[in-house]
């Protein structure tokens, strides 16, 4: 398990992370989502030991990670813009990583390269952006590391490769017990694969929980009341995150369990109501709106 304990990190006076604390359980795909500049990349760079937090500590399987080869050997960092040595081929990069990660499997790397039709002896600088991303993922998977930290890794992959990578992750989770940590803006993508989600905004963590639990605790309710006071009664008796009106149809984003909400709404005798689960993207937007991350007025 990766334990993030109250870490803060600033760059030239700008706070990138402010007292972030949460755990990343192992054996699950962890999605790290956040607004632009929320500190997702910084957090990943801290977790893999590239950056030293100004304060706080990151514990990987009981060991502090910074400058600790034992802890770092369990982590492979797939940067959003991975570096490859100039003029290098995938085979040469594999040799580099096999030196750094003794658990690196050249056989597996070769098989995966063949499976994705990537040429091991072609210069990486001639690869497309997507091919570089694929190579990067294959290096990470072949490294034998327990934790794969993926920063915007799915960006630039075509849908077929994306599905293939997801399958690889799931397969390795089952067979080798890896824990992918995926930071991305593509929430629909994460929703398909992630089981656990951490939501960052403005250098702090808003929430971190199981995606299923998260979805069970927040709903979108579309409702039409005859009497306007009924709406006010509902709003008073639950935690409304956002509200949108289209004529008489009111759409509310509300925290709470489905039975609680249904009981509350039916008690006010609505003309029509429907309780819908939120997508991860909707949860993200709702949660960040509450914190003032709202640009709906940009066209006014």
């Amino acid at each position: 398990m990766i334990e993030i304990k109250d870490i803060s990190k600033s760059y030239e006076g700008i706070d990138a992370l402010k007292g972030v604390s949460f755990d990343m359980p192992e054996g699950q795909v962890f999605g790290l989502v956040g607004t632009n500049g929320a500190g997702k990349s910084t957090l990943l760079r801290c977790i893999c030991g590239v950056c030293k937090p100004d304060s706080g500590e990151i514990i990987v399987d009981g060991e502090s990670v910074y400058e600790n080869p034992s802890a770092k050997s369990k982590i492979f960092f797939l940067s959003d813009d991975q570096y490859f040595f100039p003029g290098c081929t995938p085979a040469e990069m594999a040799v580099y990583y096999s030196t750094m990660y003794p658990g690196f499997s050249m056989e597996r790397f070769g098989n995966l390269m063949d499976a994705l039709s990537l040429d091991k002896k072609r210069r990486i600088q001639t690869f497309s952006k997507g091919m570089k991303k694929q190579l990067c993922i294959l290096l990470g998977i072949s490294s034998g590391c327990k934790y794969l930290l993926c920063d915007e890794t799915f960006d630039g992959l075509d849908p077929v490769v994306r599905q293939a990578v997801k399958r690889l992750f799931i397969n390795d989770m089952e067979e080798a017990g890896i824990t992918p940590v995926i930071a991305s803006h593509n929430l629909r993508e994460l929703e398909d694969i992630c089981e656990y989600v951490g939501l960052l905004h403005n250098g702090g963590v808003i929430l971190s929980k199981d995606l299923g639990d998260m979805k069970l605790g927040i709903f979108k309710v579309q409702v039409v009341f005859k009497d306007p006071s009924s709406l006010e009664t509902v709003k008073k008796n639950c935690s409304v995150i956002s509200e949108d009106r289209r004529g008489s149809l009111v759409t509310l984003t509300i925290r709470g369990t489905r039975p609680e909400l249904e009981t509350l709404i039916t008690s006010q005798v609505p003309v029509f109501y429907e309780v819908l689960p939120l997508t991860l993207e909707e949860i993200f937007i709702s949660e960040t709106e509450v914190l003032g991350y709202d640009f709906t007025g940009i066209t006014k």
Binding site: P69, K74, S143, G144, C145, E175, G177
Partner: peptide, 14 residues
């Protein structure tokens, strides 16, 4: 599988 995985990289020295 987890036990097996943890052993491999961490216990080998570069």
């Amino acid at each position: 599988s987890q036990n097996k995985e943890v052993k491999t990289p961490a216990d080998n020295k570069i």
